[in-house]
Design a protein around this nucleic acid. Structure first.
Lengths: 210, 210
DNA sequence: CAACAACTTGTCTTTCCGGTCAGCAATAAG
DNA sequence: CTTATTGCTGACCGGAAAGACAAGTTGTTG
């Protein structure tokens, strides 16, 4: 893999395009985003954009895939089997929250996609997300069986955690309005993380002993 | 107000159009929905649709407004001041959950709109939602001051409740995949309602005494 | 520096879609 | 029965946007 001036530019430009596409898709949805607009955001011509990503569908898929790969990588319950449930949960919620903070646009694109019925992602969800989900549910059930946490519905526990964390990316505008701010700041995310974590931990009634 | 055959047909057709529009907007977003597609869903011609709703923007606003009016009507914390916090919270979560069950499409349209930065709804949120939100926050704070519930962040409590309930409308496809079902059934919503309510109530540590 | 590959842009075609308009059909009112 | 109002349709227009194509430019390598 040569690292010529060109190939470096290429990589840099590609990722600039992807960031721009993410931004535009997040705001306008798939159909509402024109290649023209994405190109303009990335400061290149439409034709040049098409040179790098020959069509819109492909660009969209790349944006989604990038986001999902990050999520799948960061969000595995299982890695931390030695820890206490409380520690695992806290870390999980914190990770998920940071993803909302760091990749709000990717999260929004994902949300648009799922709400629309996941026409592009459905297969991927079945093949990649479900297996991990099933494993994680089993783990939580084992916690319950060992009496480490309250009897709680494991599936819906995950749904709630995902919703409660993801909302800080997807519905940020609503929160800004309600909190009377022009944008969510670092401090808001910290309060949110604390609130959600405590919320979940308290709901689980996690015991400190292993 | 005469109730001629025509005017009755008109009303019936209008609401059929609104339901169809809701359905299409939910799936495709604003830009992705064509008047043609909405008309086809309602089994009328495009020109006839335009006869009833002279342009797309207006139709979209009507759909959103219908949904919001229902929400605002059903979701006031304050009405029930006599009850215990636990009772108020339980009722609130149940109401919100039923709205997700009964109006999944409206909910999805709303979600698309907020994720996209609320270009249409922002003013409405400021003028209608924020005042109610502020009042509800005050109420929760008073509960805390009276020692009726644990010290919890009131704003983020609402964000979490909204997210956790709304997700059963917006992200239903993801859940279907993960639960291995072709669609969410009555029983799923009942389990969900129970799970979410218990979460929240337990997290609040609401005391039974008034 | 010559030849080749990588990159960039301007022009053009095609398709789709929101909306207009003129007229036809059905119903209500006098 | 006649006229006016309301409901509905087919033909059409203008603009936007995806993508093809060809031509030109810049960088790379022997």
């Amino acid at each position: 893999m040569k690292r010529t001036k060109q190939s470096m530019n290429r990589e840099e430009l590609e990722s600039r395009i992807l960031r721009s596409a993410e931004f535009v898709f997040a705001e306008k949805g798939y159909s509402g985003s024109s290649m023209e607009a994405i190109a303009a955001t990335a400061n290149i011509s439409k034709q040049n954009l098409i040179y790098y990503f020959p069509n819109k569908e492909l660009l969209y898929q790349r944006v989604l895939k990038e986001m999902l790969d990050i999520w799948i990588e960061k969000l595995s319950f299982l890695e931390a089997q030695g820890d206490t449930p409380e520690a695992v949960i806290r870390r999980y919620v914190r990770e998920k929250m940071q993803l909302s903070r760091l990749y709000p646009n990717g999260s929004k694109v994902f949300a648009h996609e799922i709400i629309s019925g996941a026409p592009v992602l459905k297969e991927y969800l079945i093949s990649h997300l479900k297996p991990q989900f099933d494993r994680d549910v089993v783990l939580v059930k084992s916690w319950i069986n060992k009496g480490l946490i309250e009897e709680i519905d494991p599936e819906h526990l995950f749904f709630t955690i995902w919703a409660a964390t993801q909302t800080y990316a997807d519905f940020s505008v609503q929160m800004e309005v309600l909190l009377g701010k022009s944008r969510l700041e670092e401090a808001d995310f910290e309060r949110a993380e604390l609130a959600v974590t405590d919320f979940v931990v308290r709901a689980l009634g996690a015991k400190k002993n292993n």
